[in-house]
Simulated assay, not measured.
Amino acid sequence: MDIAATMRRLTGPLAGRIEMMIGRAVIAAIADAPQAQAMQIELLADEVHDGVERFQGYGFTSHPHPGAEAIVVFPGGTRSHGIVIQVEDRRYRLKNIAPGEVALFDDLDQIVHLKRDGIHIESLNKVTIEAPDIEVIADSVVIDSPDIGLGGASGAKVARVGDDVDLGTGKIISGSDVVRAE
């Protein structure tokens, strides 16, 4: 009796299941409405799985584009119930960040980058902060803008330190053209 052949025969099914436990996939479609994001993924040739749950880290979520790549785990090695555990989209990945740095980014080049020398936020779109109170504690604050509205989009001009003001009328004689308050 050939012991090696017997061992291959006995362990063969187990080895096959182990080999099928982890796979690479391409995302074909995403359903973002369910409690857990559900994906249609393409694995091996002609192997398509629908409704595969995606596990995301607590407090973080994203909606990747079709064509992004994924790592899929199949508990027990059976391909009937996969779980997407990681998604990568090399088309949009922020590149060349320094060791130790972290960034959040999207496909529109909007970035929150924790850099070695500070935090950098970048967007070509409007940035909105909604909160009942905002507190800024800093040694210095610089606002570089050609148009500053305090309390609204329009209003009376506000004098800055150093502006010439008629103390009798309160009218700004020279200085601020960019700061207004309602």
Rank of each mutant, 00 (worst) to 15 (best):
N96A: 11
V136L: 03
G168K: 15
A98C: 10
L124I: 08
L14D: 04
L44T: 03
M20G: 13
G57Q: 13
A131R: 02
A28H: 05
A4H: 12
E182A: 09
G12M: 07
E130T: 14
V72H: 07
P34S: 14
I41Q: 03
P146A: 13
T6N: 10
T128E: 06
F74H: 05
A131L: 03
H81R: 12
A98Y: 02
L108R: 15
D50P: 03
G12V: 00
S123M: 05
A28T: 13
E53W: 03
D163R: 00
I97T: 11
P99L: 04
G57R: 13
H63P: 08
D50Q: 14
P34K: 09
L104R: 06
H65M: 14
D109C: 07
E47K: 11
A153M: 05
F55G: 15
V158T: 06
R91A: 08
Q37V: 14
Q35N: 10
I143T: 08
V112C: 06
D133A: 06
G100T: 11
P13E: 06
I27N: 00
R93A: 09
M7V: 15
L114H: 01
I119R: 03
R180L: 02
I173W: 11
T61Y: 15
R91I: 02
M39K: 08
I22H: 10
A103F: 06
R79C: 07
I129A: 08
A31Y: 13
